[in-house]
């Protein structure tokens, strides 16, 4: 089984600060990989570079054998609305707030060429159910939803076209703990069901343990440790990983 996404020798410096210092990474189909580390460790930068939203100063990112940063914006956008998905930490960055829930879910379908209103609506209804939003609210605006619902809506909107690879940037970041658990479980179930490959950036160790098969620990732009999630968390080798794990309450 060959890798879906491969990154090699990524370097990116902001002035003297190394956001990425020789980072390499592979994601295979159906694999959930968590990138953990504290704020400023470079994990969000890595996500953005891998998703083609930011160019590295050195190194390359290959998706299905194609150089993500050399392919041109049109091809990259096509990828972003077909094979890829991106779930933002703040659902307001990933949703159209003045467009109804149904329209938000339908947008990717329409961008992919769907031109049958009835079918789009049926698909949107189905996806609202899957993310546990009452389909009766299909015509409501996202601003009428709670934060947790907004995040679930963003997930429905992202997954409706059945991408192969989804980038998630702290998807539970701004939510109450009780709401986080529900969202995590929902993500976990959908990812397993759809066989998605997911690259999730989080500083929530418990979330990473629940969702990820594999984990990368980042510090100062470097991957200091990586491996099976439970191996990294239960037998951390690097001093920084030990600190990270020991700082968590019963993860």
């Amino acid at each position: 089984m060959s890798a879906l996404l491969t990154a090699e020798g990524l370097h990116l410096h902001f002035g003297k600060v190394a956001a990425l210092d020789d980072v390499a990474l592979e994601i295979h189909p159906g694999e959930v990989v968590a990138i953990v580390g504290e704020s400023g460790s470079g994990k969000t930068t890595l996500l953005r570079v891998l998703a083609g939203m930011m160019a590295p100063q050195q190194g390359q990112v290959l998706y299905a054998g194609e150089d993500v940063h050399a392919m041109g914006e049109a091809a990259r956008r096509r990828l972003m609305r077909s094979d890829w998905g991106f779930v933002h930490q703040n659902p307001r960055d990933g949703l159209r707030l003045r467009v109804s829930a149904g329209g938000n879910v339908g947008e990717r379908l329409m961008a992919a060429g769907a031109r049958h209103y009835g079918n789009i609506r049926a698909e949107a209804t189905e996806w609202l159910k899957r993310v546990e939003i009452d389909p009766a609210r299909i015509d409501d605006m996202p601003l009428q939803f709670s934060g947790g619902m907004q995040q679930r809506l963003q997930i429905a909107r992202t997954l409706v076209t059945r991408p192969k690879l989804v980038f998630m940037d702290e998807p539970t970041g701004g939510l109450d703990v009780s709401v986080q658990a529900r969202l995590l479980d929902l993500i976990r179930a959908l990812v397993a069901e759809l066989g998605l490959a997911v690259l999730i950036v989080t500083h929530d160790i418990a979330a990473a343990r629940l969702l990820a098969h594999r984990m990368l620990v980042m510090r100062r732009g470097q991957v200091v440790e990586q491996g099976l999630t439970d191996r990294v968390l239960d037998d951390p080798q690097h001093p920084y990983t030990q600190l990270l794990v020991s700082s968590v309450l019963a993860a």
């Binding site: 491996g227 099976l228 439970d230 191996r231 239960d234 037998d235 080798q237």
Partner: peptide
């Protein structure tokens, strides 16, 4: 046990 399972390196 944990080494056998790969939970510990």
């Amino acid at each position: 046990m944990r080494c056998l399972y790969g939970n510990y390196g």
